[in-house]
Amino acid sequence: MPAPAIETENLTKEYPFGFLHLMKRTSLEGLNMQVETGEVFGFIGPNGAGKSTAIKLLMRLIFPTAGSARILGKPISDVEMHRDIGYLPEQPYFYDYLTATEVLDYFARFHDLAAADRKDRIERMLKKVGLETARKIQLRKYSKGMLQRVGLAQAILHDPKVVILDEPMSGLDPVGRREVRDIILQLKKDGKTVMFSTHILSDAEMLCDRVGVIVGGKLRGVGAPGTLVDMKTLGMEILFELTGASNAPLVAKATRTGDRYRLQVAEEELYAAIEQLRGAGARILSVSQVKATLEEFFMNLVEADRAQGAAVEVSEQ
């Protein structure tokens, strides 16, 4: 089996803080993960979870407190390996005295591309990210979304084998998001490996072969979006209307929107619940399976983490 495209081993980053930097905050704790060649891997987690920390470690912009990582089978300290990597930083910013064409040309020069080749690629890239008309404008006059597009262009300009994108959709309009999705799918079709972080779970669900959920600096689960979701027990939802007043306990538990009530019960209690509601004079409109989404899995993890964090805070006092 070939080496994974991206592989981390116990990757850990601590930041010192407080008086004389004596205390340490762990931003990333023992990250072990693999992204296989040709895979689209989503990195999801709430704000401050450690997604960017992990990505910056891979890009050797910051250095790990412990652990190591390999990309394309080579240690990340290998500079030449970076020829085959594309990276989009979070909230990218570029030399504001250059135009889009100039900044792409500048970056392309580090990849030893010949002048004609550079020109040709830049032309195609600008078209791909929708900046053809703005190519001669200095970047200081660019909007946030336009900078994001420049960032995307420089990440894939040199036809890298592994593309790592830190929140590629952020700051983009709906058209832009759609274009980025298409670009990621195209990269996958071309056999590239893509790893991207995002907050937008529907994007992750739609695009990713696998996702990794990271909360509080720890990887909490890795798998295909569908399999992660199965971890949550499914329930049943009953939608009903009342024909008269009722004080049945189940009615009290239901949530009311307008004239309708919505009640969620466990699968095995479904028939008992229906009996009880019929006795209370309810008219049942529908019964449906509650399919847990990635979002719920995500929310559960985040809430558990918050509760744990709160518990720690309480015990510290």
């Binding site: 890009m59 050797r60 912009l61 500079v79 030449e80 390996m81 970076h82 020829r83 990597i85 990276y87 989009l88 930083p89 909230q91 990218p92 910013y93 570029f94 030399y95 504001d96 970056f107 580090f110 990849h111 960032g151 420089q154 990440a155």
Partner: peptide, 14 residues
């Protein structure tokens, strides 16, 4: 400060 370095240092440059 302006984080223009981020994209650059990910390129093959020491």
């Amino acid at each position: 400060d302006k984080r223009t370095l981020y994209a650059l240092l990910a390129k093959p440059v020491r």
